[in-house]
């Protein structure tokens, strides 16, 4: 069974009208196409990188897969469950680490934040402390748990977002540009953690959106290049680069320019 199967996925966002247009053409519909019929399959226990420039549709795709945005057309099957029909079941299999590390309560400690989200995910009180400790140990934040979230560094906040996503022990982890605005050491820690701990040790599927080529080349089993809302190329690093004959940068550039 595939971890993720996507068929002909389309998404058009409505454009907010100005006063003039609202007055003269109140019923005219305008939209920005974010996804133009995405077809994609992701194998389980893989590190899958979705690579593309800004505005390519990476975040839209990840948010649709995480049940936060509704698609206009197409089908998504996650671990055998239809996203449209069985949203609650899909939620049991996914974890979403938002790139927006502000999505925590800053005046609460890391522990209090995780406790809140663990409760919302139905983790019983009797197991909660143990589960929180487990994910804190995994992301290396066990010593900072009692500190207020507003004292955390950007890297720690990002790790905390991953820890929150892991509370439910999901099979598939969505991460949207997790190394954005991190220093090189913190970024490398997150990459190692996702690839080695999550994929290799815990056999999870990591669906990773990035626009960092070196990151994708070093850590992904499979890369898909998205541009203008379409998948332009997909394969393993060696397939895409023809066993290293051409650089990934050239492959990426060609795919993006063709769109």
């Amino acid at each position: 069974m595939k971890a993720i199967q996507i068929e002909k996925l389309k998404k058009v966002y409505p454009v907010v009208k100005g006063y003039r247009e609202l007055l003269f053409h109140p019923f005219r519909r305008k939209g920005i196409t974010a996804l133009r019929g995405i077809d994609l399959e992701v194998e389980p226990s893989q590190c899958f990188c979705l690579m593309g420039p800004n505005g390519a549709g990476k975040t839209t795709l990840i948010k649709i897969l995480s049940t936060l945005v509704l698609p206009d057309e197409g089908n998504v099957i996650i671990n055998g469950h239809d996203l449209k029909i069985n949203t609650d079941e899909v939620k049991k299999h996914i974890g979403f680490a938002l790139s927006e590390e502000r999505s925590f309560y800053w005046r609460l400690t890391g522990l209090q934040n995780l406790d809140f989200f663990a409760a919302l995910n139905g983790i019983p009180l009797s197991h909660r402390r143990e589960k929180i400790q487990e994910v804190l140990n995994l992301v290396g934040l066990e010593n900072a748990a009692e500190r207020r979230f507003n004292t955390y560094s950007t890297g720690m906040r990002q790790m905390m977002a991953i820890a929150r996503a892991l509370l439910t022990d999901p099979d598939i982890l969505f991460v949207d540009e997790p190394t954005r605005s991190l220093d090189p050491v913190a970024a490398q820690n997150i990459r190692n953690f996702l690839r080695k701990d999550m994929v290799e040790n815990h056999k999870k599927t990591v669906f990773w959106a990035t626009h960092d080529l070196s990151e994708a080349q070093e850590f992904a089993h499979t890369i898909a290049v998205i541009a203008q809302g379409q998948i332009r190329d997909k394969g393993s690093v060696s397939d895409l680069t023809e066993q290293g004959k051409i650089s990934l940068q050239k492959v990426y550039k060609k795919a993006v320019e063709e769109s």
């Binding site: 925590f104 989200f117 919302l120």
Partner: peptide, 13 residues
């Protein structure tokens, strides 16, 4: 504004 709404909605509540 803070983004916690998405984090709550993605939970099983």
């Amino acid at each position: 504004i803070t983004g916690t709404l998405e984090a709550i909605l993605v939970s099983r509540t």
